[in-house]
Amino acid sequence: MANRTGTYVAFDGLGEKDPTKSDFRYYSTIQAWSANKNIKFSLTNSHEKTDAVRDTSKRTTLYARIQERLKSSKNMLVILTKKTRFTGSVLSYEIEQAIDTYKIPLIIAYPEFSSILNVESHSDIWPKALAERINNTGVEAIHIAFAKDCIMDAITRFHVNGEHLSDGKNYYNRDAQIKWGLIR
């Protein structure tokens, strides 16, 4: 296995050409946090470790690049919203590969929710690939709010060489979420 140091960020582009109309905006937020010297947030972005893929690239080229990036990733940050498609997006392929082939822990972030205390209550927005795998033995995932401190904690703790998660339905306890200001 390659040197696994990156975090692979996955989201549904929703078939949009305009990134501001898709979940790409959340990926852009993470990039901005990481680039800002005044914000304590550091991300080794797996997408920056390989050549860029254009929207016009063939699917085989895209899938090969995804596999290359996943091979060097220690974890995957999956961004899910109410618009995330159940099937038909590249996100499904990314989740399948991360879990089935590369055994990468998932950090599942929900931008539309301020806190996550009941994982099952969000199952209606899980893509089919995630829904089919989340209860399987060996799947490691933590479900979190899309909040800088929460994401940073999860990225640094839960990865192939870090702390292991008990199953696919973990979340931070109420006290941790209060500490981060997610629950008042």
Rank of each mutant, 00 (worst) to 15 (best):
L77R: 02
L62Y: 09
T84L: 02
Y93G: 00
I134T: 05
I95A: 00
E132H: 10
L91M: 08
A52L: 14
S89N: 03
H122V: 10
I30G: 01
S42H: 14
K21E: 11
R133A: 06
G88C: 09
K58V: 06
S73I: 04
P105M: 06
S72Y: 07
I79V: 07
K71T: 08
N36L: 08
Y63F: 12
P105N: 07
F24A: 09
N118H: 12
I39D: 13
S121R: 13
L106V: 07
R133Y: 01
A35T: 10
K71D: 11
F24L: 04
V90M: 09
L130V: 07
R69C: 08
Y102H: 08
H47F: 09
S42Q: 13
L43K: 04
T44S: 13
T87Q: 13
I104T: 05
K103G: 06
K103A: 12
A98C: 06
Y27N: 05
I99E: 00
V90P: 01
L62W: 10
T61G: 08
A52C: 10
L80F: 00
T56K: 08
N36Y: 08
D124S: 15
K83R: 15
K49M: 14
I104H: 01
Q31H: 10
S46M: 06
A109F: 05
I125G: 01
K58T: 10
N38W: 11
H122Q: 15
V53A: 07
S92C: 13
T50C: 11
I66R: 00
D100T: 14
N118D: 15
S28K: 14
I30E: 01
F41P: 02
S42K: 15
I95P: 00
R65C: 09
S115W: 05
N135C: 08
